[in-house]
Amino acid sequence: MALECRELGYDSAIALGGDALAREELGAHGIQVLKGYCIEEKSAKGVTAACRRAPGDRIIMVEAGEYAFNRAVISIPGIKILRGLWRAPSNAVDHVLARFAAQRRVAWDIELNPLVRTRGHARQRAIQRYRDILMLHRRLGVPLTISTGAASVLEQRGVRDAMRLCALFGMGQEEVYRALGTMGLLLRERRDVEVIGWAGDRPRSD
């Protein structure tokens, strides 16, 4: 799949699961495979616990849910991507959440799979949801990522196909390029030092 990904015009990919050794070897074939970790918990508490369990070198993404859940998830440190927004309820995101995600630099994922595999009402709903997300991205600057969500070579789509599919909900060529580079940008971004815990006793404030 990684080799097909390279042939389709990508220079890197995020893979969930699989074998780490094989991935390192793929680096020599001109494709960088980053390791992802998808959390599909129903509660924010569960997500926090899963985040702690996640290996340190993984890009953590969380399956979106209800509005309150999404808001809680965005505030959890270490989470990079909120995905599956097309499956979430229609009121799962709004402008307040978009502004918050833009501040926290948590990207919202646009999955191409529903545009390719679904038909009729389901695809119309996905297009509608992606239009809303695009509007929030344009106005409030919430970072977007584009993913195929592919489980096999046949489900992968190239860069040009991604552009064509994203044009269905009004996303321009430049916006697609930017969204494809979002993950690289987020990983390179310099962040302020965050205190995530104390090794010993908490120092006294006085």
Partner: peptide, 14 residues
């Protein structure tokens, strides 16, 4: 790009 199958076999066209 949205073709996923032909004659009940999975397929993709690039």
């Amino acid at each position: 790009a949205t073709v996923v199958g032909a004659n009940r076999h999975p397929v993709s066209l690039r």
